[in-house]
């Protein structure tokens, strides 16, 4: 069999699966939002997974990059408001780092808005569902990231 490897990017339509989203939620703010959504039994699309972390500071930028390499279409990082973090100013450090990572993602073509870094305290739990829905729609409009780059699970090169 012969395969024509066209060199301009393969126009792959977004496959039917809804975009995969990974949520890093800090236990003291982000998770409370997710819990709030759960308590209200709000129906949500099942295309996201939540990883609880002690503080947004421990979300390694390399882990976010690894997430995209493993086939995620979008990553949300939910931390506490600046000034309200139990770990002094750890959330602002994370914010700056991930802001720089967004610049890199924009540069390389993945797009700055595939990584959403948000800050919200516990009482804003009801916004968890809105954030998730808006983010999913935003990502769904974009082309699927399932390119030949992604590693083992998506497609082995």
């Amino acid at each position: 069999m012969a395969v024509e490897v066209s060199n301009n990017h393969k126009q792959q339509k977004a496959t039917e699966r809804t975009p995969r989203i990974l949520v890093f939620a800090c236990k003291w703010c982000g998770l409370i939002g997710a819990d709030g959504a759960g308590r209200k039994r709000e129906p949500l699309p099942p295309n996201f997974r939540v990883i609880p972390v002690e503080c947004v500071g421990s979300v390694e930028p390399d882990a976010v990059i690894r997430a995209f390499a493993d086939g995620m279409d979008g990553v949300i990082v939910m931390g506490c408001h600046l000034g309200g973090c139990r770990f002094n100013d750890a959330n602002h450090a994370a914010f700056k780092r991930l802001e720089l990572l967004r610049a890199l993602l924009e540069g390389v073509g993945i797009g700055r808005d595939r990584l959403l870094v948000t800050f919200g305290t516990a009482h804003e739990g009801h916004q968890f569902t809105d954030v998730l829905r808006n983010f999913t729609n935003l990502i769904a409009k974009k082309e699927s990231l399932d390119t030949s780059w992604t590693s083992s699970r998506a497609r082995m090169i």
């Binding site: 972390v53 503080c55 500071g57 979300v59 390694e60």
Partner: peptide, 19 residues
Amino acid sequence: ACGNCLSVCPNGSMQMPEM
């Protein structure tokens, strides 16, 4: 255990054992 240090460590020498 806020984890900032392990996020900026270039070669993963800094680890949080629980995560």
